[in-house]
Computed example of a mutant assay.
Amino acid sequence: MGYPPPMPDGLYETDIFAWSRHQAALLRRLARGERVNDLDWDHVVQEIEDVGLSELNAVRSYLRVMLVHLLKLQGCPASPAASHWREEIISFQSDAQQRFAPSMRRSIDLAALYIRAVKQLAGALIDGVVGAQQPPICPVSLDDLLHADRDALEQSFAKPDRPSRHRPALIASITGLPPRHKSRLHPARRRADPAGSCQD
């Protein structure tokens, strides 16, 4: 069986693709119980950590763009671009769902993402006008963004000063149960996930 030649110095910096193939071959040999001496452990560990961080940052990005589009719809619901924003909300929600892992929850600061979304739109002109005043705090939770249907999310942003009116619709869209069951589900869910919380 032929083994790869020793790794050239600086390969990680000059050819990450060749470096990754070389390290993968060495790790396979190590898994078979062979002794190997050419593993670039520092960079291998760094790359493994970066894989998880890259997934986390992707989910954060999808959520932030969802918030931006929801704020645009809240400010300019009659915009000619509104249908495009709604399509992208659905698309980005699907992408966020696919890449989200439960262990990411504590690393997603929804309040900070919401502030970034608001700042992104600060003073921006949409169709030549400044949009309506944004809600002072995020009117939805992380679970809402990941699982509620688009209409329920949009409705919650449209009336941020009355979250209790729209929370049943959000819960129904997540659980699949009709709103008439909200009296049994709402208190329990509110204890686990406070209405309008941005701390998830």
Score class of each variant (00 low, 15 high):
Leu73Pro: 00
Tyr12Lys: 01
Met66Pro: 00
Ala82Ser: 14
Ser156Thr: 15
Cys138Trp: 00
Leu113Met: 06
Val36Thr: 15
Trp19Val: 00
Ser103Tyr: 14
Met104Ala: 03
Leu185Asn: 01
Val36Gly: 03
Ile137Phe: 14
Pro179Trp: 01
Leu185His: 02
Arg184Lys: 13
Met7Phe: 00
Ser103Cys: 14
Ser173Phe: 07
Ser183Gln: 13
His69Thr: 10
Ser94Phe: 06
Glu47His: 09
Gly128Cys: 05
Leu30Met: 09
Asp50Leu: 10
Asp42Pro: 03
Ala81Glu: 15
Gly176His: 06
Pro4Phe: 07
Leu145Ala: 03
Asp149Trp: 08
Ser20Met: 13
Val44Leu: 15
Ala117Glu: 04
Pro5Glu: 12
Leu121Tyr: 06
Pro135His: 03
Ile90Asn: 12
Asp193Val: 15
Pro178Trp: 05
Ala82Tyr: 02
Arg191Asp: 12
Ala24Cys: 12
Pro163Ser: 05
Phe157Cys: 05
Ile126His: 11
Pro187Arg: 07
Val118Trp: 00
His186Leu: 15
Gln93Asp: 04
Gln97His: 09
Pro6His: 07
Pro80Trp: 08
His84Arg: 14
Thr175Ala: 08
Arg28Tyr: 09
Pro187Leu: 05
Ala148Gln: 01
Asp9Gln: 14
Leu27Cys: 11
Leu11His: 03
Ala112Thr: 09
Ser61Cys: 07
Arg184Pro: 00
Tyr12Phe: 15
Pro187Thr: 03
His84Pro: 01
Ala31Asp: 08
Met1Pro: 09
Ile108Phe: 05
Asp193Leu: 09
Lys182Phe: 06
